[in-house]
């Protein structure tokens, strides 16, 4: 685990670092961070607890325990990563371990949104390319990769990989609006006027079209 975590802030245009491969479909948020570690009022200690049960079961051979992967920041996964519970503790735990970018075949929706809202980009690649990339990383785990949010290309010294990322996601990462609170609050007057039009907040007065 990284002792000094640099939390994402403002505009995110590039992410670079070593890749770490975690194979398997449907890796759920209970596995990423088991529920007993949710008994906390802050996220501070979650980095040590990420994949706690899987790591214990694999006695030091889990990718997050292997020496060569320490300090990695780009997580490569398969299908439906992060399914299950809405716990933001899952991406928070990954972030605190050192993950800054996730590339996979597909992501569960709430997990994907949670990642975006804390500044972890999630990009998609085909099954075939993920499989090729996973092999490349396993053969040269110390290779440095750089991901460019604008072009959505992941580059190593020898290779480049196209990824998919929805337009809205890349735009807010680049503009810094992934940290949405101030953007949302800036619409306060519009929010208040909507609240005055919604029937269930206004004694069910409504216009029939």
């Amino acid at each position: 685990m990284n002792n000094l975590i640099k939390f994402p802030k403002g505009s995110i245009k590039k992410v670079s670092g070593q890749c770490i491969v975690l194979r398997g479909d449907d890796i759920d948020t209970d596995r990423i961070i088991p529920a007993r570690f949710l008994k906390c009022v802050n996220f501070d200690n979650l980095g040590d607890q990420v994949f706690a049960d899987d790591r214990k079961e694999r006695k030091g051979t889990h990718p997050f325990d292997v020496d060569i992967n320490q300090g990695s920041s780009i997580l490569i996964v398969n299908k439906n990563f992060g399914c299950g519970s809405s716990r933001e503790h899952a991406p928070q735990a990954l972030l605190r371990w050192g993950i800054k970018l996730i590339i996979g075949e597909s992501f569960a929706e709430i997990f994907y949104g949670n990642c975006l809202s804390i500044g972890i980009p999630c990009a998609r690649m085909s099954e075939l390319n993920i499989s090729k990339l996973q092999k490349e990383v396993e053969q040269g785990p110390q290779e440095n990769y750089e991901f460019d949010i604008t072009s959505k290309i992941l580059r190593s010294k020898s290779q480049s990989w196209n990824t998919l990322m929805e337009k809205g996601a890349s735009e807010i990462l680049i503009s810094g609006e992934w940290d949405a609170t101030s953007l949302l609050i800036s619409q306060k007057s519009k929010i208040k006027s909507i609240a005055k039009q919604i029937p269930y907040l206004n004694y069910f007065e409504f216009d029939i079209d």
């Binding site: 809405s86 709430i110 949670n114 809202s117 929805e166 949405a180 609170t181 306060k188 929010i191 609240a195």
Partner: peptide, 21 residues
């Protein structure tokens, strides 16, 4: 009706709204 993460809980508390596709 849908589930949200903690950062969105913060946003809803602050703005009674959130960003969603």
């Amino acid at each position: 009706a849908f589930g949200i993460g903690t950062s969105q809980v913060r946003d809803v508390l602050a703005s009674q709204s959130l960003a969603i596709n």
